[in-house]
């Protein structure tokens, strides 16, 4: 559950914002990354932005972290 996932910040202000996470808009807290602005790629963990990312790097890590997040949530339909 330490998994953090890259997302794009689409709204922010006053310590809160909205991030685009795999096409879903989720509310996020931005107080730990006060430097983040709309349009930034950020790492989101448990509803908190924990790091503002370099744009190129974020897209490179998107696929694997997104995949791992679905796996951790058990939504990748693995059969037991």
């Amino acid at each position: 559950m330490c998994l953090a996932v890259p997302a794009k910040l689409v709204d922010c202000g006053d310590g809160q914002g909205v991030a685009d996470l795999h096409g879903n808009r989720v509310p996020v807290q931005t107080l730990f990354a006060p430097e983040a602005v709309v349009g930034d790629w950020v790492l989101v963990h448990a509803g908190f932005v924990i790091k503002r990312l370099d744009p190129g790097e974020a897209e490179a890590t998107w696929a694997v972290l997104g995949d791992l997040a679905r796996c951790a949530e058990g939504t990748d339909h693995d059969q037991y």
Partner: peptide, 13 residues
């Protein structure tokens, strides 16, 4: 409130 250092600041907040 579970989790390592990644998660604990969220509890503090």
């Amino acid at each position: 409130a579970v989790g390592f250092e990644t998660t604990a600041p969220a509890t503090a907040a």
